[in-house]
Amino acid sequence: MENQTLLTIEDLSVQFVSAGIRTTALSGLSLTAKEGEILAVVGASGAGKSLLAHAVLGLLPKNAQVTGRMTYKGQVLNEKTLPRLRGKEITLIPQSVTYLDPLMPVGRQVYYPMNKQEGRAKTAALFEEYGLSPEVMKKYPFELSGGMTRRVLFSAAVLSGAKLLLADEPTPGLSRETARHVLRHLRAFAKEGRAVLLITHDLDLAVECADRVAVLYAGTLLETAPACDFAADGAALRHPYSQSLWNALPQNGFHPVTGNMPSPGERVESCPFAPRCPKKTALCREKPVPLRPLRGGTVRCIHAT
């Protein structure tokens, strides 16, 4: 049976209006996430990765304006549907311990959406599965190590029973070893039929663990590609930015990408990567570059083949 598409994002844009000034944080983003797969969303900090997760959950700050269309199992995500879906069908695996209430024992924070007895028993079982000792239930967030925090947050995600997991930067601050361990858990989630959106700045880990990789740059999507396209010298990749990002990794020659990513204020209509692109032509500056399907992925580059 074909795996069902859980999340569809079409042409999502997010703008912030503050003191009359409008800044575009995300624009023209289109993605899908299917059951059983890990989709990594990769980008430098400031590319808009976390915003994407918050936008899907409908939890952007009040001065945000969202356009475009997002659906979950064909159901449009909006103020009406989201309150029913948040925490039940779609949930967040946040990035750090600051996302836990500092004054509540972590065990309770994991099970509070459920009734106490059942919740506590299930949490205890999950903690054991994740190698957390029973005392951790009574600990407060400030008493957890980075790896423990991760496992506590994962327990909460599993307990929620959500099918779409938005994992926001689950690996920073962890040793390579622990990070791999964490990603194995994500893989297990996918195997159980969930869809995982893995938001990360770590292309290396993303390629290692995800099925597909979406590359975010300056608030827009430049490419989605099967993870296996990130191989050798990156010739299979569609976008010049993905290629340079890939070749900037130490094991691929450490060729740095020169120049800086435009910040939200200075984003242009035409190709956002043009100022740094080695392959640009006069044509690239003329008009907005649309996202188009190419070889089983998508790309936003007029010259990609």
Binding site: H54, L57, L59, P83, L85, R86, G87, K88, T91, L92, P94, S96, T98, Y99, L100, D101, P102, L103, M104, Y112, P113, A156, S160
Partner: peptide, 28 residues
Amino acid sequence: SDYMLYARARGEGEWTALRRHGLRNLAL
């Protein structure tokens, strides 16, 4: 705060989140 965002992401309404996490952190 991050923990309120997370509480909302887990399906708590504005008031529930405020009651469950806000008040305690506020009252202290």
